[in-house]
């Protein structure tokens, strides 16, 4: 057929071409970081990284490695652009976002290079949807310079028990205080709201805690409004790693399993709320 040969010739012009049988593998991961409209997309031979930032204090990264796609071609070392994530998600979920057994939407994603729109071709049950989304000039993204060698305290736990604690956070509190310590209470989340303070403690020998490596007591505060969006990633995830470095910067890494058992990661970085005592130093 003339159309199909023409298409395969056309494919040569793209610097990025990715195909996927089930678009939900991408859309669910992107939903986990959807707390701002604009995202920056980095494509490399390893896969896609999508970054969303807010207030120069929090950054979320979603990694969709190349193996998630059943076809992934990139002709340059790195391709990056900004894109409206809200629009991208609407397009990816145009056939509906809930899982219907036996029905999956396939995706073909193409990008012809700087200044070109991101093209999406979605197909479900013989129905085709074409989308063309404008790409924007990429900005520089924040570098939190978060080094694993500087990490002081680290916990890996099942997400389940954190989900409740996070979804019930007292939003009248400005901050969420996280205490990590080799001594009791080990791991404590505190809020200070209009109706009083709350503390949730997680013992280190709980079944939920898979690894507990805390070397010294650290108490840091983070803006609750910045952390709240990470609940989206938390609810999708199976496991979470919580790390805090010597400057008090927080890293949350979520391990998310998709329906086919493949694993993707989403990470959040958040800077601590400026402490009066420390500001004086």
């Amino acid at each position: 057929m003339a159309l199909s040969t023409q298409q395969s010739n056309d494919d040569d012009q793209y610097v990025l071409l990715a195909k996927l049988d089930n678009v939900r593998h991408v859309s669910t991961i992107l939903k986990a970081i959807h707390f701002k409209e604009i995202a920056t997309l980095f494509a490399s031979p390893m896969g896609l990284k999508v970054t969303v930032e807010d207030a120069k204090c929090v950054q979320a990264n979603a990694f969709i490695q190349e193996s998630i796609f059943h076809h992934y071609i990139i002709k340059e070392e790195q391709v990056n652009f900004k894109i409206n994530l809200t629009v991208l998600l609407e397009c990816l979920t145009i056939f509906g976002s809930s899982a219907v057994p036996g029905v999956s939407t396939s995706l073909k994603m193409c990008y012809a290079g700087y200044g070109c729109p991101l093209l999406l071709i979605l197909e479900e049950d013989g129905v085709l949807t074409d989308c063309s989304i404008k790409t924007l000039e990429p900005d520089e993204v924040l570098d939190f310079n978060f080094l694993s060698t500087n990490v002081i305290n680290k916990i890996i736990m099942k997400s389940e028990c954190l989900k409740e604690a996070f979804s019930e956070l007292d939003m009248t509190s400005d901050v969420l205080q996280i205490l990590l310590s080799p001594d009791p209470p080990y791991f404590r989340l505190s809020t200070f709201g209009n109706s009083g303070s709350t503390h949730s403690d997680f013992p280190k020998d709980s079944d939920m805690v898979e690894s507990f490596q805390c070397t010294q007591t650290q108490t840091n505060r983070y803006k609750i409004s910045l952390l709240k969006p990470s609940v989206k990633a938390l609810t999708l995830s199976a496991r979470v790693s919580i790390r805090i470095d010597n400057r008090g910067f927080l890293s949350l890494q979520y391990m998310i399993k998709n329906e086919d058992g493949q694993v993707c990661f989403v990470e959040y970085y958040c800077s601590p709320d400026e402490d009066v005592d420390e500001a004086e130093h």
Binding site: N84, V87, C91, I94, G126, V127, L128, T129, D130, C131, S132, I133, K134
Partner: peptide, 12 residues
């Protein structure tokens, strides 16, 4: 729109 164009095709 300025940002995006989307079209869905049904056949048959």
């Amino acid at each position: 729109t300025d940002m995006v164009s989307v079209s869905t095709h049904y056949q048959d």
